[in-house]
């Protein structure tokens, strides 16, 4: 097998660029999906928290809703895509830190809202982070005991 010097150089250049120009086909599969039919099958005013947990399993995340209410979120992803990226190293060190809620809420999915008595009030489907931003209320920080 004969390879011309030009072709060999081009291949070596391509190999050398591997650290800055990358691309490929990627699939991300995260958690089991919840079907739209399962979500709409839980009727507001009738379905309870027990019903939801039995039919949909454990939620991915939970937050406080309207004081004594509860929001339960189920999220999943099954996405495949082609992607290309050009990266330029700008420093010798990198660090990344992601919390569980950040990862969990960065998914599409379904959220069910329950009153304090455990009865379903409403359900929403969409990006979990957006739904949480619209419906959760940040608790004020506790006042320190030695505060004036």
């Amino acid at each position: 097998m004969a390879i011309s010097p030009r072709l060999a150089l081009a291949l070596l250049a391509a190999l050398g660029c591997g650290s800055c120009l990358t691309g490929g086909y990627y699939r991300t599969q995260m958690f089991g999906p919840v079907a739209h039919e399962q979500v709409v099958g839980l009727v507001p005013g009738k379905a309870t928290l027990d019903d939801a947990l039995k039919q949909l399993g454990a939620p991915l995340y939970v937050w406080e809703w309207k004081g004594e209410g509860t929001a339960l979120a189920w999220g999943w992803r099954n996405q495949a895509r082609w992607g290309f990226a050009l990266s330029v190293p700008v420093g010798g060190r990198n660090s990344a830190s992601f919390s569980y809620d950040k990862i969990a809420l960065d998914l599409p999915g379904a959220v069910l809202f329950f009153e304090s008595d455990g009865v379903l009030v409403e359900s929403r489907e969409g990006q979990l982070a957006d739904i949480q931003a619209q419906t959760s209320v940040k608790r004020p920080a506790a006042v320190p005991e030695n505060a004036p």
Partner: peptide, 27 residues
């Protein structure tokens, strides 16, 4: 060379325990 093919599969065991104001399990 510069083309990558990657699959990531994440699955989890999850359990949520709900307690009332007296710390008794409800769900």
């Amino acid at each position: 060379i510069i083309l990558s093919f990657l699959n990531e599969d994440t699955r989890a065991d999850r359990a949520w325990l709900f307690f009332d104001a007296h710390d008794v399990l409800t769900h």
